[in-house]
Computed example of a mutant assay.
Amino acid sequence: MSNSHIMKSLSILTDDVACAKQLNARNVRILSTGGDRGRGVFAARDFLPGEIVIIGLIERMERTRTTNSFQLDWNVHALFQEPAVIVNHSCDPNLAIVPNRFGAYDFVAIQQISSDAEVTWNYATTEFECVGVSVCLCSSENCQGSAGGFSALTPDHPMLVAGFYAPYLKNARR
């Protein structure tokens, strides 16, 4: 591969990242939740199911799991850039994750989301054992009390049935 081909490929990827950041800036806002959950991410426009709300971008890889890292594989953890890293957990989320071309996850609407609504995802869909939410503050009707992790989800959990979880967890024993 020539240097000019490599430079062109890097330029395209840089343009793609810039485009992803612009899309994120148009789609969502980071605001205070007004409660114990601190900051959260809120829709800047209406979304229909299936629309990408946030394009996840990796800030840096982590050597070990942290309370803010995303698990990408069994021993692979990454810190995502804002706004993705700020999205709060919910046991009844309005977003699901899907792998993206940047090696991260996109956050896709799984129900209609109105402008100004907080967007949330279930941390257990990427973490085999979740360390980020020991006490859940989502207050949803289906609240499990903590994110718990993929290993704690029941086989009939809606996110599992729909296939909305990290690919590395596909063959995980539950």
Rank of each mutant, 00 (worst) to 15 (best):
R37L: 09
S11A: 14
R65V: 08
S69P: 00
I54L: 00
R65H: 10
S90Y: 04
V53I: 07
S69D: 07
P83E: 05
N24C: 08
G40A: 08
A84N: 02
T67R: 15
E51H: 03
T67M: 14
A44H: 05
R37C: 11
T66G: 14
K8S: 13
A84P: 03
Q22M: 12
R37G: 07
V87Q: 00
S11Y: 08
S9E: 14
F42M: 05
L10R: 13
A43P: 06
L48W: 06
V85T: 12
P83K: 01
H89F: 04
V41I: 08
F80T: 03
D36Y: 12
R63P: 01
G35N: 15
D16A: 14
E62T: 09
I54T: 01
A44K: 05
N88Y: 02
H77P: 04
N75M: 13
S11Q: 11
R63H: 12
H89N: 04
G40R: 02
F70A: 06
L23G: 01
L72M: 14
R65Q: 15
V41N: 01
V85I: 13
G38A: 10
L57G: 04
M7F: 09
L10M: 13
D16I: 03
L23V: 11
M7V: 09
S90V: 01
A20Q: 02
G34S: 10
A25G: 06
D36E: 15
I6K: 14
E62M: 14
T14M: 11
I12S: 09
L72N: 05
A44F: 05
Q22Y: 04
H89G: 06
G40S: 09
M61H: 13
M61L: 09
L31A: 13
H77M: 06
I12L: 12
D73L: 11
E51K: 01
A44R: 05
A18V: 06
S11G: 14
Q81D: 11
D16F: 00
G34T: 10
A25E: 15
G50Q: 03
Q81V: 06
V41D: 02
L10N: 11
I86V: 15
E59C: 07
V85G: 06
A84T: 04
L23D: 02
S32L: 08
I12G: 02
G50E: 02
I6D: 10
G35D: 15
Q81I: 03
V76A: 10
L23R: 07
L48K: 00
G35S: 15
D15T: 10
S32I: 04
D16T: 03
T33E: 10
G56F: 01
I30F: 09
A25I: 07
A20V: 01
Q71F: 00
G35Q: 11
R39S: 10
T64P: 03
A25V: 08
A43R: 02
A43G: 02
